Amino acid sequence: MPAVPDLPAIPPGFAAAYLAQQARFPGRGGWQPVHTVYVPADQFSADTVAEWRDAALSLVNAHLAGPDELAEVFGVPPALAARVHDRLLRKLGREPIEDVRIDFEDGYGVRPGPVEDGHVKQAAEAVAALHAAGTLPRRWGPRVKSFADGDPARSIRTLAGLVGGVVERTGELPAGFTVTFPKVLMEDYLTQFADVLCRLESGLGARLRFEMQVEAPQTLSFLRAELPGSLDGRLAAAHFGVFDYTAALGLPPHEQRLDHPACDHARHVMQTAFAGTGVELSDGSLAASPASGRAEDVHALWRRHAELVRHSLRHGFHQGWDMHPSHLVSRFATVYAFHLAGYDSYRERVAAWEERREAGGGVMDEPATVRTLAEALRRADDALP
């Protein structure tokens, strides 16, 4: 019988590799919003949150009178409809917007320098007023112009002006700040923008992070697990931009939709690149509002938006963009129905696994499935009011 070789207890280099693994793949962080509301900077004010709340509640009162109508419009099982309806009303009344982005990019357009500077000041005043009133969303910040536009100075000036203006008025940078960096066509732009944030945060007493937008096929080529580390951990999220992405592929206008297979591919690349890194993922938007105030038009908009939200959720994207107050209704109703549908059975299966007993129904859960069940419960607890 051959002699057993003398093996090291720990392979050479293991400790360094294990530390690198822990740093690169820390897992999911804390609470993540279910949506981001984008408001053009010239329209953003201290009244924005209240205006969106009132508009959404008005639509519910007019066109979603009770659980039965909610079940019919959104395809919610009747057994869940009352619970979803109650949570929807509570959410719209207490926290209609979880994450707001003051948009200085596509939704705002190109304005003369002094005009944009004026809107930066106006936005800083609005943020300060919302913060003082206790109504500033839990996440907030600007979307600045892309470096791909060829004018990084404008982007940096807007960012610095907003941050400085808010701090001047409040004495601090309120919690939840993040900045959206769009149209990242070159990887170098990410490094350059991260360096801008590093310089800007000096003296603020707050660490500045940003979310990149994936809006072009070229961007997919440099998405990888090492990217957040190369940016000093400043990359907080990656948001998918459906309209620029589908336009760049040459899809016809009527195919610019979140549930197009080309968009599924892009999102799956994003998932593969950032799985386990702690970088949050967000889907894009529906660029539509009700065609009129009639019930049939409002319901048609809600049904289409709900289809897209469900599509995102099924694909593991738990956040998306909302562009109109009507979207708040279909967003929250669909998210709540999605989580409530499996909540009790998921909880029972996790409990059965922990107690080493059968959950019933002939289900044989693998450890990976139990981890997925537990994660689904944590997301539900974060999302449900």
Rank of each mutant, 00 (worst) to 15 (best):
S45I: 11
D68H: 09
R349I: 08
P2T: 04
H299D: 05
L162A: 10
R154G: 10
E354C: 02
H327S: 14
E116R: 08
S289M: 08
G165Y: 07
L7F: 15
V309R: 01
H35T: 03
V279D: 00
R169M: 03
A20R: 06
E72L: 13
G293Y: 10
D382K: 01
F177N: 01
A300D: 12
M270A: 12
P5Y: 14
T334V: 07
R349M: 09
A153P: 09
R357P: 11
A273Y: 12
L162I: 09
W31R: 06
V298Y: 05
A17L: 15
D259A: 13
P96Q: 08
E358F: 12
V163A: 03
R53F: 11
M364F: 15
E366G: 13
V363G: 03
A79V: 13
G360N: 03
R143D: 02
A374D: 14
R379L: 15
E226V: 07
L190Q: 05
D188P: 00
V110P: 07
P112D: 15
P152V: 13
G233S: 09
K183E: 15
L70N: 01
T372Q: 09
V363I: 12
R209W: 11
Y336S: 02
A194T: 04
S292P: 09
E307P: 04
A71C: 12
D47W: 08
R157V: 06
V196N: 03
V329G: 04
A237Q: 01
R357C: 13
R83K: 14
A380N: 13
G93D: 01
P8V: 09
Q22A: 13
H63Q: 01
G361A: 10
R224M: 02
F147Q: 00
R304F: 15
L227P: 03
R169W: 04
H265A: 08
L7H: 14
A153T: 11
H35V: 08
V166D: 00
A368G: 12
G361F: 12
Q21V: 06
G229S: 05
S230F: 07
L200P: 06
A351Q: 02
L377K: 00
E116H: 11
G118R: 00
H265E: 05
A351D: 09
W353N: 03
D54G: 02
G118L: 11
E201I: 04
V39S: 03
Y346E: 13
Q218T: 12
A333C: 11
T272Y: 15
L59Y: 06
V144M: 02
A55Q: 06
H339V: 14
W140F: 09
L227M: 03
G109W: 05
G361P: 02
D381I: 05
V110G: 06
R371A: 07
V196A: 02
T170H: 00
P217D: 13
G233H: 07
A262Y: 06
A237P: 02
T219F: 15
D244V: 05
W52R: 00
A376G: 07
R371I: 05
A128I: 04
E226S: 04
H339I: 12
T277E: 04
D322F: 11
